[in-house]
Simulated assay, not measured.
Amino acid sequence: MPVDRAVALIHAAGVGTVTTLLALPEDERDPQLSPATRDATLASIVTSLPKQDHADLASLAVGLRAHLDRLA
């Protein structure tokens, strides 16, 4: 995900969460809403994998094999 899109997503999630919490009476606010929103937002950014072609996968496999051989 491009950096500017990630920043916009974090901003939208933060503003939406704060606005939602402030719209509720204090005794009805879910204290876990903010951490849950943060975790979901970060997970969507961090787990986005770049597209790879088969050549990239082959080089990754070779690198993994070399590291595994050193551990054995």
Rank of each mutant, 00 (worst) to 15 (best):
V3K: 13
V3A: 07
D4G: 02
D4E: 15
R5L: 06
R5D: 06
V7C: 03
V7H: 03
V7R: 08
A8M: 04
I10V: 13
I10E: 01
I10A: 12
I10L: 13
I10Q: 01
H11G: 01
H11T: 10
A12R: 15
A12W: 02
A12K: 11
A13R: 03
A13T: 10
V15S: 11
G16S: 03
G16F: 03
V18G: 01
V18H: 11
V18Y: 10
T19E: 15
T19G: 12
T19R: 15
T19L: 14
T20R: 13
L21N: 00
L22H: 07
A23D: 08
L24E: 14
P25H: 09
E26Q: 10
E26A: 12
E26L: 10
D27R: 15
D27C: 02
E28C: 02
R29N: 02
D30E: 12
S34K: 06
A36I: 00
T37D: 05
T37A: 13
A40N: 10
A40Y: 09
T41N: 03
L42Y: 12
S44C: 08
I45A: 05
I45P: 05
I45C: 06
I45Y: 09
V46I: 13
T47Y: 15
S48G: 08
L49M: 11
L49G: 00
P50F: 00
P50V: 05
P50Y: 02
Q52A: 06
D53N: 10
H54M: 11
L57F: 06
L57W: 04
L57C: 02
A58H: 10
A58G: 01
S59L: 05
S59R: 15
